[in-house]
Design a protein around this nucleic acid. Structure first.
Length: 259
DNA sequence: ATGTCGGCATTGTGCCGA
């Protein structure tokens, strides 16, 4: 089972890119972030025509997540539990029926800038809610994959210029500590399991010719439960897409599970 | 490196969020 997470940065602005990617790269499961549209505006027919089931959790203008799958999806959950007043569409969850069932969550973690401030408080509160949900999912002892745009640079090794991010919500100590708490639960950063070296990024800002200078950061992650880590056969970043036509500022990050 | 995008409210272009 090949699972990819991809912050698409606007599904309508990126539809041609997305459809070409689905046809060329053919993920079994794609977790999309920043679809930036309501559910009814999602180009469902175009995606379904290419063999994918579509589940969305959208919002007007901002945020929004979706799961596309060539395998059946069951038990879809929309929204992260823990705050009924939170109307931001940043979490979707479903069970993928492969040779083995895999519970997947697609997440778009709050950016949190400027920090300190209310947006940073929201980020940390959201990460605490995610921690609780991640713990609940572990209790099933089934393979679980938490994939998405975490807006967290886990370590200095995950940035080309770590000194540029020291005061940024993506790299502040509290952000990194909250990310590590997910690891302490028993999850593993799948990419790091397979690639210990620095210099691998998933995001390059549109500004400042970041791509041309390879001034990137690694903020798109797939966290795998122990039962999913046992099935992990590959993890990689599809960097080439950033050089393509009308790219997102993020690229897909992939894992393969023997499931 | 505040020199880029996408989407919204709007009919021109400024604002927000990233």
């Amino acid at each position: 089972m090949q699972i990819a997470t991809f912050n698409i940065n606007g599904i309508r602005a990126r539809l041609t890119t997305l459809l070409a990617w689905l046809e060329d790269s053919r993920p079994d499961v794609a977790l999309l972030q920043e679809i930036k549209c309501v559910d009814d505006a999602f180009p469902r027919a175009e995606v379904e025509e290419r063999g994918y089931a579509v589940e969305t959790h959208g919002q007007k203008g901002f945020n929004g997540v979706a799961i596309l799958s060539r395998l059946p999806l069951e038990d879809v959950r929309r929204a992260l539990p823990g705050d009924d007043a939170d109307s931001q569409a940043r979490w979707i969850e479903a069970t993928v029926i492969g040779r083995r069932p895999v519970r997947v969550a697609g997440l778009y973690l709050p950016n949190g800038n400027p920090a300190p401030g209310p947006k940073y408080d929201y980020k940390l509160a959201w990460m605490a809610r995610m921690h609780a949900q991640a713990a609940d999912l572990l209790a099933s002892e089934e393979p679980v994959v938490l994939a998405g745009d975490y807006n967290v640079i886990p370590q200095d090794a995950d940035a080309a210029r770590p000194e540029a991010w020291t005061d940024d919500a993506l790299a502040l100590p509290d952000s990194r500590a909250a990310f590590r708490r997910l690891l302490y639960l028993g999850y593993s950063d799948a990419f790091r399991l397979r690639e210990p070296r620095s210099g691998h990024y998933s995001f390059w800002d549109y500004q400042g010719a970041a791509w041309e200078k390879n001034d990137g950061i690694r903020i798109d992650h797939l966290l795998v439960s122990p039962q999913a880590a046992d099935l992990l056969t590959d993890a990689r970043i599809e960097k080439d897409l950033r050089a393509g036509e009308k790219p997102s500022d993020h690229v897909p990050v992939w894992i393969e599970l023997d499931a």
